[in-house]
Amino acid sequence: MIAWGFQTAVGEITLVTFTTLAPSSVMALMVMSGILLFAHLSNEERMRINTFMIIPLVLSMIGLVASATHLGNPDNALYVFTGVGRSPLSNEVFSAVVFLAFSGIYWLYSFSENPNLPFQKVWLTCIIISGAGFITGIAFAYSESTIVSWYSAYVPVNLWLNALVGGPTLALLSFQVARYDRIRGLLGKVLCAISGVAIILNTISFALQDSTLPSMENSFTTAAELVPYYGVGVGAFAILGLCSLTIWGRLVWGKGRRQGIVPGIVANILVFTGIFVMRFLFYMMHMTTGVGI
């Protein structure tokens, strides 16, 4: 049974990658947009933060490009927009395009010689709203009643919590690269706290979901048999997340001179590895009612 689950997840590895990277990257961009909107920033700080929005932007693009490579015939991709409103997948792609358009245009515009700040603020608001839409789009992309193991409230909740786990840590790294020192103050502490609370809630939600898997049954197997190591994955996710937070905690609460970016990168690799594991297990558990696996 586990072999079938494994086959599904390996077959959809690009989607595993996309759904690992995109939600957290989008959340990081939303956090950065929030700071650009509401914090008192010097011109230079604003410019540097604008510039390094490219980090989460590129990561979310990598995810999207990765997911496009799994298409059998990308030439027909534009037809995907004809399904908006009907197909959850079309809704997801549409929300992705809207979000990336807002973020990409904002980022390019930020390099103009005299950017208009009020205009930028409207644009940043659009990034935040469309980002929430995009994460929701991914969360409900597989919402179809026949897919019994995915048609559960835990699926969108977990996806949103994933974004809240990885988004703040990626934002911290981006701010660090942008040399925005206030992450060593209240901002850094708040971001660590959000990620920490999200790790706890996400772990609880994963564990509760795990307890529902044995009762999800079709004519071949149960969801629990497709992902027998779900509990181990949840444990790994929690431990990796907490290790990442420990690193950030030392950077944010630590005194003394500014740290290099290597620990921040390591912290992000840890947290994203944990999310990747859980996304892999998510695809492993795919099954429909009846005879589909």
Partner: peptide, 17 residues
């Protein structure tokens, strides 16, 4: 086939495989 992108969602959703 002139519209299909090969995303596989139909396969994932059909309960009759």
């Amino acid at each position: 086939v002139d519209r299909c992108v090969g995303c596989g969602y139909c396969h994932m959703a059909c309960p009759y495989d």
